[in-house]
Amino acid sequence: MFKILKYSFYDLMRSRWSYVYFIFYLALGFILLFLNNDVNKAVITLMNIIIVLTPLIGTVFGVMYYYNSKEFTELLLAQPIKRSKIFMGQYLGISISLTLSLVLGLGIPFVAYGLFRSSAIFDFSLLLLVGAFLNFIFVALSFNIALSNENKIKGFGYAILMWLFLAVIYDGVFLTFLVFFNEYPLDKFSLIATMFNPIDLSRILILLKLDISALLGYTGAVFRKFFGTNLGMTLSIFILVLWIIFPVWRMNRKLKKKDF
């Protein structure tokens, strides 16, 4: 597995897109910090971008990589290696290289700006952590979609649709539901609905450290209890881990029966 990981990582690290992605984050970091001069604001703006963009990039990269390396994968499949190792290697290769682009791209400007002297270091690290989680989650999800769809166009379409659903539509439905069933106690429902969307969950996780915890406390006892303590943080991270484990598990299960 580590051999495959190594080579797909090399391959991706030399791809133009990795650089584009890296340079995008680098430029974003510098622009945010040096035009704004406010680390706190930069962290909030970054959150908005990371929450939306990392899942999208993870999804697109995942699907593209899968379909583009299909023939090569076949060559690998004829080698004496276990199937799951090939795909886990590729999966980790993409996820790690994307995460590296993110961490270095944003890390360099922030370090240059003097992050270590700033109180925002914790918020910022959390931001990168969540970005990394989202990379791993969405690459895994997109691999699942690609594995289930032989047709490249279809697979790509579904993957984008999945992103659109989790990034936008889900919240729209969620919001409508909350407004519509206004008179019922909704905090438990909201809490659970948040857990079922990794993007929402990541957003909450960052907001817990930024500004939302007390705002949530404003609503109901369940929220206050959950978000007011470290329990919320721990549980959120735990569920994010599940969001990686489940698609990876399904990927491996799917692989056992898959024809190439």
Binding site: Y7, L12, E71, E74, I81, K82
Partner: peptide, 20 residues
Amino acid sequence: WGYRNQINYLPQIANFPANL
């Protein structure tokens, strides 16, 4: 999967990672 060590296979379409 181990038995594949004793097989050489030439696939129909040759497509490799572009950046290696």
